[in-house]
Amino acid sequence: MLDKNGIAKRIAKEVKDGYYVNLGIGIPTLVANFVRDDIEVEFQSENGVLGMGPFPFEGEEDADIINAGKQTITTLPGASFFDSATSFAMIRGQHVDLTILGAMEVSEQGDIANWKIPGKMVKGMGGAMDLVASAENIIVAMMHTNRAGASKLLKSCSLPLTGVGCVKTIVTNMAVLEVTPKGFQLLERAPGVSVEAIQAATEGTLIVEGDIPEMQL
């Protein structure tokens, strides 16, 4: 079973040379730490920066330079700042190549829920609805089950949706899966995790064809 860094490490392998990438808050943010350093990738943050760098050195933080998580950041050579409409033009106009975000639930139709738990958590969707409605290439990074042990890969989502039919790939602490018309196709297992264990943790339809390889990290 992978930890959060393990999930991020596996997803980092999907980040290709020349990609513009939007990373959501949580596990997705960790992906930046594992991208190969022999390829050129630019990270976009929807509050208005392309070419995000690491956190600033102590004492060099600037209230005017933050990411979508409101964290102080730095920029790399070639970076740019822009307004919110331009930022979402990049997203809605499909200029961003890859979107990686977290989820509370994903359905086997590719629906995603990650913004609201009625009566419990009402924080808002931020840019998530724009991202999932427009991105061609969406990877969901999440734990396979919630804290109560219930599956987060469902026949249909129970929480209010963020987007419909938009998720293509899911990387969890147990597996890599692809959303297909027939259900969740199992592509890879996390090291030491059996197909049976993945099946038991997946409420939605799981399609297992042939030998399922272990993830290469």
């Binding site: 690491p54 956190f55 050195f57 933080e61 409101k70 102080t72």
Partner: peptide, 8 residues
């Protein structure tokens, strides 16, 4: 600053 994130 809402989230002061730095590295040493």
């Amino acid at each position: 600053i809402e989230q002061r994130t730095v590295r040493p």
